[in-house]
């Protein structure tokens, strides 16, 4: 690989690495922001539900007796088609009201309960977690004595989220690929024009080496290129010094032989 190609490859690798890093970070950043924006919207829905339910329980009604709850949950669910289900459960985990497939009086799904586990010790009243398929946002319900009486869980489909994030990724990958291609081309042109001296030096070194190997370091035919000549002179002086040393060693060996003889 010649030096121009080598430097173009290095430059393109660096560009690919940094643009790749920027792409990944921007993609991650977008995913994180969209998660924040979406879950903050879910928190608004939950907060409204909590507000209405708590108002009723503060009047002394038991959570399971709230007759308007089903209709209220259904209205909230209909406000956004991506809401899969809204559940109200009591402190034992028994589902009291549900807008989806979970039957009342059944237990909360294990997948949701497992999401809740690490949050228990945080003492949080509002929480958000997510699996690959859904966001799960929850809020704790309190009675007028500030004691927890259950909670609301909202399950939100992430399909729209994945579509948005996927779309952004696709766009970013395309832009990055085009940029990398253009940058690589610019780098190739820049290196070809900007590093002619270096390329020339490398060629001169090869040419001078070939000449030295051919002539054994002795001055032979005249070379027109000054740089080749200079380098040949340098290599020639090395070979001359080496020959000089070799001669002295040989002389020393011969002297020793004659002394022995």
């Amino acid at each position: 690989m010649n030096i121009t190609t080598k430097m173009t490859v290095y430059t393109t690798c660096i560009l690919a690495m940094v643009l790749g890093l920027l792409l990944t970070m921007n993609y991650f950043k977008y995913g994180n922001i969209l998660t924040e924006v979406t879950t903050s919207r879910l928190a608004v829905i939950n907060k409204n539900l909590e507000f209405s339910l708590s108002r009723a329980t503060n009047l002394g009604l038991a959570l399971e007796e709230l007759q308007f709850a089903d209709a209220m949950l259904m209205r909230a669910k209909e406000s956004d088609p991506a809401i899969r289900e809204i559940l109200v459960f009591d402190n034992t985990g028994k589902v009291l009201f549900s807008t989806g497939g979970t039957a009342p009086d059944s237990r909360m799904e294990n997948s949701v309960v497992s999401l809740l586990e690490p949050l228990k010790k945080k003492d949080a009243t509002e929480w958000v977690a997510h699996t690959d398929e859904q966001f799960v946002a929850g809020i704790t319900l309190y009675n007028s004595f500030d004691r927890s009486i259950g909670g609301v869980v909202l399950r939100y489909d992430r399909a729209n989220y994945h579509a948005l994030v996927g779309g952004i990724l696709q766009n970013l990958v395309f832009i990055t690929a085009v940029l990398l291609g253009v940058s690589g081309l610019v780098a190739l042109v820049g290196i070809s024009f900007g590093f002619r001296e270096l390329r020339h030096t490398y060629s001169a070194m090869q040419a001078a080496l070939a000449k030295v190997r051919e002539s054994g370091g002795t001055d032979g035919d005249v070379i027109e290129d000054q740089e080749v000549e200079d380098f040949k002179t340098k290599l020639g002086s090395v070979t001359r010094t080496m020959d000089e040393a070799m001669t002295q060693i040989e002389v020393s060996a011969a002297t020793s032989d004659s002394t022995k003889a």
Binding site: T11, I14, L15, V18, L19, L22, L23, N26, L172, I175, T176, L179, L180, V182, S183, V186, A187, G190, I191, G194
Partner: peptide
Amino acid sequence: LITIVLVASSLFLS
């Protein structure tokens, strides 16, 4: 060269 190309392409990407 790398700085110019990189700054330009990174700015564009950002």
